[in-house]
Write a protein that binds this DNA or RNA. Structure first.
Length: 193
DNA sequence: TGGGCGATTCGCT
DNA sequence: GCGAATCGCCCAC
């Protein structure tokens, strides 16, 4: 059986609102551990909720670089969250990876997370970061080579959209995308579309 | 240089 | 449902 093609830089060099829904159903592995992307959120540089909105800083510098790289940041001083930088160089837009359906390296994820229930391994950006061993060392890493392995989806899934979670600005923008009906989301979608 | 706050999670009520 | 944990980032002082 042939693997689907790797997602390369050209895939990410488009509008974050095109890329985000197309990531649903794709495979994300870090050192061989991961699964199917079932939930993401889009953050555009003109969006007050985006880290890049205030302009370039030391933390968000990767967002201002070329597409196809990982932007990793610390959330609430506790969790590591993983983003994919999109759009042309300098657009400072990214997709936050919020949830996976775990399929590879289950034992490693269970050990890192300290829980056994599959649904609890990657059902949120912080959990996903812990399960995949994400940390600052991956900030700025290319997504088309190790330790990352990203594979295109093989079929177009049914996509749900809704409001983003945990933000205080631009809360009404429906830029959360998910696999409709998935049991591995961080939270259910109010309605699928 | 310090205070406030955050793209979260978990445990307790 | 609510609040603590926990700390780096950012901006005002």
């Amino acid at each position: 059986m042939t693997k689907p093609p790797r997602l390369r830089r050209a895939f990410f060099a488009r509008s974050v609102h095109e890329v985000a829904p197309e990531l649903i159903g794709a495979i994300l592995l870090v050192n061989g551990v991961g699964g199917v992307i079932v939930e993401v959120e889009a953050y555009h540089h003109t969006d007050p909720a985006a880290h890049s909105y205030i302009g370039p800083t030391e933390r968000n510098a990767v967002m201002f670089g070329p597409p196809g790289f990982a932007y990793v940041y610390r959330s609430y001083g506790i969790h590591w969250c993983l983003n994919f930088v999109c759009e042309p160089d300098g657009s400072a837009s990214a997709v936050l990876i919020r949830a996976l359906q775990p399929t590879a390296g289950l034992a490693a994820m269970q050990r890192r997370r300290g829980v056994n229930e599959i649904r609890a391994l990657c059902s949120g950006p912080g959990k996903l970061g812990e399960a995949l061993g994400i940390d600052r060392s991956l900030n700025g890493s290319a997504l088309d080579r190790p330790p990352f392995e990203l594979r295109a989806r093989e079929m177009k899934p049914d996509i749900a959209t809704g409001q983003r979670i945990g933000i205080s600005k631009a809360v009404d923008m429906p830029w959360r995308y998910g696999l409709a009906g998935s049991h591995f989301l961080s939270k259910p979608f109010r309605s699928s579309s």
